[in-house]
Amino acid sequence: MRLPNKTCAMGATIARINDGDTVMVGGFGVPGTPMTLIHALVAHGAKNLTIIKNDANEPGMGIDHLLRAGLVKRLITTHLGLNAHAIGLMNAGKIEVEFNAQGILAERIRAGGAGIGAILSDVGIDTELAQGKQIVEVEGKPHLVETALRADVALIHADRADPFGNLGYVATARNFNPVMAMAAKCVIVEAEAVVPLGALPADAVQTPGVFVDHVVALETLTEEYAVVER
């Protein structure tokens, strides 16, 4: 028995993204951000997207290209501090921004990927992040209902993949990638190396290929993946 081969060309996979879709994008800063898939999405041009990503990268990098192309209607995120351009769009009302506490964003995505409707948490219950959220009492303490997040598509960056979509990550490029890879209808992975089936030891697989739909091999790493000079 042989596991299915999910490798494919970049353009064909990205063409599956439609206007109005919700797209999860892995990464925390540069590490783990699927820069090449993002450029392909800009070229494809699907509009009115809802983007779910920890941060907005930096001006001229990562999802800032989607913002500059005017493809983003709504951004569900935790922190835009390194992207003054994104903050400017938010303040001008050009994009809607929903801020989450960082670990709660991760847990909402995890719930979506785990087939759970919502989680209960007291994080931020005394803050404006609690506004508009349902409150449930558990063992005498109030908790916010944090609804699960799912997406139409997840764009994932992996260090290595096999053709079935078993993935491995490196260092702090892991971040939101494994959890987002569980929470979308269509999971597209860019991998720095695609290795033969069996080359990733089963114990070393960090995202099982069962969650993954398409694997794209990166032929080159652009400047955007490099160390940022500040």
């Binding site: 590490p31 260092a171 702090t172 940022v228």
Partner: peptide, 24 residues
Amino acid sequence: DRNLIDAGGAYVSTVPGSAFFDSV
């Protein structure tokens, strides 16, 4: 290392016994 930063974006390093994990 382009893949090794802290939450503020500074490039950091490991020590013997360091661990990496996901956001969850």
